[in-house]
């Protein structure tokens, strides 16, 4: 990783400073700051974590305790798109396991992995509150319900092509 990639861009640093200033104590901005980094880079690398910790006046381990605790903060690189396939009870009843197996075959990855072309990361997620349209999933920020195999087959090629 080059030096340029290890530091935070000036605009992102300013955003994090503003988040910290809006809190009674800077550490109150931990999650918002880590999410800002993730929005920019897709994940939170160790150099970036260190930079954020410095801005918030926290130790890196302290902040990493938060970064590794929350389901939606990624401490490893992910693909250009992230599929969060619900694995909670209503979706399980409505057949999420066969969908997961199908995705595994089509993408040639298991849950927790990223495709070889770096297009898609497949992750399980806890209930996403779309149980009346189970099985459900989030593709990046977009909610999909009543998911079936044809719907997945329509979706995947487009995701692979999208930047």
């Amino acid at each position: 990783m080059s030096t340029a990639e290890e530091t935070l861009p000036a605009a992102l640093e300013a955003e994090i400073r503003a988040l910290a200033a809006a809190e009674p104590y800077p550490r109150g901005a931990s999650i918002a700051a880590l999410k800002a980094v993730q929005r920019h880079f897709g994940w939170i690398s160790t150099p970036h974590l260190r930079a954020v910790a410095e801005l918030l006046g926290m130790s890196m381990d302290d902040l990493d305790g938060i970064a590794t605790y929350f389901n939606l903060l990624f401490r490893k690189p992910v693909g250009r798109h992230v599929i969060l396939l619900c694995d909670s009870v209503s979706c399980w009843i409505m057949g999420r396991d066969p969908l997961c197996a199908h995705l595994g075959r089509v993408l040639a990855i298991r849950q927790g992995e990223t495709t070889a072309d770096n297009a898609i990361t497949l992750l399980p997620t806890v209930c996403i509150g779309h149980c009346d349209h189970a099985p459900a999933m989030l593709v990046d920020d977009t909610l999909h319900g009543d998911v079936d195999i044809p719907a997945l087959d329509r979706l995947i090629p487009g995701l692979k092509e999208q930047p």
Partner: peptide, 27 residues
């Protein structure tokens, strides 16, 4: 009012864990 967008942990729904999260600590 301001919106705090969390990062996904069930225990944050427990009100004291929720407060701990808002203070920038593990929930």
């Amino acid at each position: 009012i301001h919106v705090h967008s969390s990062a996904g942990r069930y225990i944050c729904g427990e009100e004291t864990a929720l407060l701990t999260t808002l203070e920038g600590r593990r929930a």
